[in-house]
Every structure is written in structure tokens, then in C-alpha cells.
Amino acid sequence: MNKFWCLLFLAVPVLGVAAFAWAPGAGYWLPRDISDHGWQIDHLFYFVLTLTGAVFVATELALFWFAWKYDGRTNMQPVRFTHGSHDVEVLWTLAPAATLVFIAIYQMNAWADVKMRQPDVPVLAEVTARQFEWRIRYPGADGRFDTLDDVHVVNDLHVPVDRDILITLKSQDVLHSFFLPNLRIKQDAVPGMKIPVWFRARDVGEFDLVCAELCGWGHYKMKGRLTVQSASAFQQWLAETAAAQEATQEPEVEESE
């Protein structure tokens, strides 16, 4: 029976590694990355995964092996009576310390790219979160916010592809979080603060905009859509939306979608 318990502990690293090996193929993995900076985050994820994976396997195997080998029923050797070893302690303090310092320094650049090196471009849109929707405002033809020609849309963020996109994030009521899984972007929207968010999308398509900070009972309802489109299609969409907003007569054909 003792061996059974040892095998149970062996199952942890075996099944753990198996789960992580199986998941990407089965579709349970990081969503597709379409951003310019996302590779750095994914790369770091894989890097830390490999490193921690190695430590995980090594320590869990050690646990299993010690349990197996030093099972009191079968181990006939006398107990190694020791209170520890200074050298070993120093070794296994310094080695992880060095690794951890390395990890810390290694990732600084990625962090700075996403959160600190703001591109020098005009603000494309202002996203105001409220319970429970994303109110989005484009500056309109005059390129300025807070004028009559601002273009208002809800839950439907359009951006041009392959451009530096700068967005101002605001909140009207409580905390929200602007999460674009496919762009590896997440930033809380804080009432009373204007927070810049920037990214660059490489592929066109429609992607989810998720609220990732609890914002009340309808938190799950707060779904937006990010449409990445070519610059011309984006301009056209913006112009159409702006025109529709100025309608003084019902359009000829009932707009449906």
C-alpha cells in the first residue's frame, strides 16, 4: 500500500506534464495572438513555463523517489541523522535567487513596451466603461473630442490594422477592465482617471473585448467587439457611422445590421 501512495505522488508530475502537453493540441491554449507585442508575452509565458515545469518535475520526482526509496517498511538502512548542511542551503538559496533575478530583469522590456513606451500618435478613440457596456467615442472629422461631430458607438470598437492605436480608457461608475485576449492587452478602467492603452493589430477580423474586473451584477454582460479592418475600410465605416448619426430623415432602406 505504501508504494501505492508513492505512485500517487508520481502521478502528479506525470499527469501534470501530460495535461500541459495535451492541452495545446486539444484547443485549450492561449488564444490566437494578433498583436505586435504579444509574442513577447507569449514567449515569456513559454519561458517561465519551461523553467517552472523543469523545477516542478524535478521536485515532484524527488518527492516521489524519496517516498519510494525511504519507505519505512522496506528501507533497511539506518536513518541518516543530520540536521542539515550549510553548503547545500547556500547552494539552493543562491541558485534560485540568481534564476529569479534573471527572470525579473529579462521581462522588463516587454512590460515597458506594453505599459510605458506610449507611441507618439493622436488618440484614436476614447473608451468609457459603464455598467454594463463600453461607450466608445471617436473624435470625428475635426480630430478633436468634445465637439458636435464626435462619433458615438457602443460595444463596437473599430481600429485600422497595422497602425499604432492609442486609446484613452475611462470609467463612468465603477472599476472595469479592458481585456483584449487576442491582443494580450488588459488594463483596468478607473473612475476619475484617464489611462492610455496602446497596441498594434496585425490581422484583420473580429475579436472579443472582455470586461475582466468585477463591475457588478451584469459583469458577464459587458461584452464588446473589436473589429480590426484595413485603413480604408475603417475610414469608410467611421464616415458612414458619422453620417448615420446626423440623420434628420429615416434612411431609405431600414438599416438592419
Binding site: 505504501n2 524519496f66 517516498a67 525511504y70 519507505d71 519505512g72 547545500v88 539552493w92 529569479l100 525579473a104
Partner: peptide, 30 residues
């Protein structure tokens, strides 16, 4: 905060290694 946070993994690692080393060479009762 990232640097300080990463460093706090260190004492935890030391503890884990010590637990494993305690098992090493013992007579384990399950």
C-alpha cells in the same frame, strides 16, 4: 513590485527543498 514579488519565491523554494531533504534518508511512515 515585480522584482520584490519574484524574490519572495526564494524563501518558499528554500522551504520546499528542506522538506524534500528531510524525507531523504528517512524511514517514512505513510
Amino acid at each position: 513590485f515585480m522584482v520584490s514579488t519574484i524574490m519572495i519565491a526564494l524563501p518558499s523554494a528554500v522551504k520546499t527543498f528542506n522538506w524534500l531533504a528531510t524525507l531523504w534518508g528517512g524511514k517514512i511512515q505513510f
